[in-house]
Design a protein around this nucleic acid. Structure first.
Lengths: 200, 200
DNA sequence: TTATGGAATGAATCGCGATTCAGTGTGTGT
DNA sequence: ACACACACTGAATCGCGATTCATTCCATAA
């Protein structure tokens, strides 16, 4: 009966192989045949599950991003406290997820820009969702009078994401031991919330 | 005598062509023959000035980055005021340079990560210099007691660069009219310096 | 046991594009 | 006028790697 027990498990293996390979060598430097051998399937098999190499990239992106967003939303929902507390938690989670899933973090930080811009006309809705979460937190904070209302939540959420992403990039590039990410997380939250200025 | 009046002018034309092409289509999607025709030279001519396509990318990066750094340092030197004022000026200049040199901004924001990671073992010293300027400003501010001393200048300078870069990316991707960048610059400075928190 | 259909394989194809190089043009010195 | 040197040209080469497809495999059902 279960002829296709493997079928979706094989698709997943391909995605995992691609993730590992892309994270390591980048999209353009990765051969389809390398992905195949990472995944333990034949070259041609990949084309049974994906239209072509681009499609594989995009599918990988969408599916992993969706997973991240769900995970993030679940965790945030569990946080007691006001939007500023949640923002702090967001920052923390961003780093934490990256530590737990290095390849994924590396893949996303490095390929996001390229793919957003150059893979066909791909416009990356899932990434927009991620930003929306951040933007939503800021707006809630503003409504509750906790966050300055002279700030444009759209610009600020971008800026925050950029700050997180760049610091993360630095961490992932310097392939050190299991990263301790607490310091980074704390510093970023500190500056975001209270700014650089020394106050007595 | 001046047989070679053109020689370095031609090299420059190639770099300009490459810049335009890379900014528009990305490194991997740009054909050497396209760069050649942008520059108005034959395909082979490119190889008289550059070892190969990678070398062209790296040279472009180094030289433009060097130019930017000089420009930035000159402007900063002209700023009266304390390190915090200079930081504000830095933010402003970052955006201003990007507006004045769209292609360059686009090229750098999009290719920086890829190339830093995947073009051979290229480790990008010029970009490090750029960060150093930022880091220096923060440290000066700390020495003068203007900036909180509990912040790690290395992490924070990364974070600031990331924020700038991401906001800029957003601007350059949405190809609108001559960008007004004042709003972005002001908002980022505001949050960096005073944080998100509402104060009465 | 055999037939059937869908999944998987991987060797062959085929186009693309970086790089090369034999040839052309031009300025300079004799 | 001639020959040399050197920048330049662009068509031909050549390797690479994405994609295809004829063939094989295998689970199921008659």
């Amino acid at each position: 009966m279960e002829k296709h027990r493997n079928t979706s498990e094989k698709r997943e293996r391909i995605l995992e192989g691609a993730l590992r390979a892309f994270a390591q060598k980048g999209f353009f430097n990765t051969k389809v045949s390398e992905i195949a051998s990472e995944a333990g399937v034949a070259d041609g098999t990949i084309y049974l599950y994906f239209k072509n190499k681009d499609d594989l990239l995009i599918s990988l992106f969408e599916e992993r991003m969706e997973w991240i967003i769900e995970r993030l939303e679940t965790e945030l929902r569990a946080v007691q406290g006001n939007p500023v507390d949640k923002l702090r938690a967001f920052v923390h989670m961003h780093f934490l997820l990256a530590v737990e899933h290095r390849d994924l973090a590396e893949f996303i930080t490095v390929e996001l820009r390229q793919s957003a811009k150059f893979v066909k006309e791909y416009k990356n809705p899932k990434f927009a969702d991620y930003l929306k979460i951040l933007q939503g937190l800021i707006e809630q904070g503003q409504e509750q009078g906790l966050i300055r209302s002279d700030l444009d939540s759209k610009i600020i959420s971008r800026a925050i994401f950029g700050a997180l992403d760049e610091v993360l990039l630095q961490l992932t590039l310097s392939r050190t031991a299991p990263m301790d990410v607490h310091e980074e997380s704390t510093q970023i939250s500190a500056i975001l919330i209270d700014g650089l200025i020394a106050r007595d």
